[in-house]
Nucleic acid binder design. Structure first.
Lengths: 193, 193
DNA sequence: TTTATATTTGACTACGCGGTCAAGAACTGA
DNA sequence: TCAGTTCTTGACCGCGTAGTCAAATATAAA
């Protein structure tokens, strides 16, 4: 019926995600995107109607990928404290390049400053699911007596989620992986009963 | 000898700081600055050679003002745990408007992503002096036996500084003051011996 | 009053941005 | 082969940006 698309839209979305992740929304231009994807502007418009939609799709992709990794890592550990460690390990990046980019969700949260409803929804989803993962582990740890019971599991989950956000920021502002990981180790160690 | 300046450069710098604080570096235009300061572009150039210098001076002003407030609040408390609470109280803003702006240093850190040496220096200064304040209180608390001694004072200071950064981020992304304050209360409570 | 110096003012430049348009190219079903 | 539809391509548009220029203006020393 019609001319077939010459590029893989999924692959291109992933490339765009990389650019947005590295540079943020405002700082990435269409020139950046076309240069790295080798797809001309109008062709991108054909699939994603504008820069904003392309960004939101990129952000959603980032969220899903990272949550999937995190949930997989968490599922691999049965001991609650070990699972918390696995989660904290999962949110930090191994390679230097990714570490300097920081977390795309957090970057976006601060770039938009809570003024964009769609971006806010992404942030909320990321935070909720991460905290749910944490809270589950904490509840089990409290039941087993390895995690302090003088605080509520929800309260501690928010606490650890906050520490993780701080660590993600540390990463981005140039701290070494060991520094970021160390702070999270301390944050977990303080939870032990 | 020459025509005197018609505006107060310090007052104008403070106004510019407000704009940069609210909008960030890239998002504020000279139009924004001239509108709020009522000073024409070229006159600003006369005092601050370009947008970047004006921003850096604004950031330094922000840092000094906030650190001064923080150090004053800390000096007002003698009990270590109370002093930590005072510090945490000091980093959160009371009025809604300031809260949504978040912390200008953190905002800048994330906007520039650790790629700007001058901005990095500001961030480092802010973090160092805040952590020094915290570490001092922790050391005293450990000496008095009110703060857990199984961790080093430096480690705990970094830990609490990290929690504070997280809370500042929460503030900006729309959390209520009570949520941010609550997380910090928990973070302090976990330090108690 | 004159002169040297600095500030003010608004017009101006060059550029990069997101987004659009129109024409040509490629594919499929008839 | 042809008609219909979508994709591709590069030129184009309007706008907002940081920064510059030069003329007009105001002050204080000589």
């Amino acid at each position: 019926m019609s001319r077939p698309r010459e590029f893989d839209a999924d692959a291109v979305l992933r490339q765009c995600m990389d650019v947005f992740w590295a540079k943020g929304f405002h700082a990435t231009s269409y020139e950046d995107l076309t240069r790295t994807t080798q797809v001309k502007k109008q062709s991108l418009y054909g699939v994603f109607k504008n820069k904003r939609e392309l960004f939101l799709k990129s952000l959603a992709l980032y969220r899903e990928e990272n949550l999937a990794i995190l949930e997989a890592k968490a599922a691999g550990e049965t001991l609650p404290l070990r699972r918390l460690e696995a989660i904290c390990e999962g949110v930090l990046y191994a390679d230097e390049a990714a570490r300097q980019r920081g977390c795309m969700v957090i970057n976006s949260a601060l770039e938009f400053g809570g003024e964009d409803a769609d971006v806010n929804r992404e942030i909320a989803q990321m935070a909720q699911r991460t905290e749910a993962l944490i809270e589950e582990a904490i509840r089990e740890g409290q039941a087993q007596g390895t995690i302090a019971s003088r605080f509520g599991s929800r309260e501690l989950a928010v606490y650890l989620g906050n520490a993780i956000n701080g660590a993600k920021m540390m990463e981005k502002s140039g701290a070494s992986r060991e520094e970021a990981a160390g702070v999270l180790r301390t944050s977990i160690a303080l939870l032990e009963a």
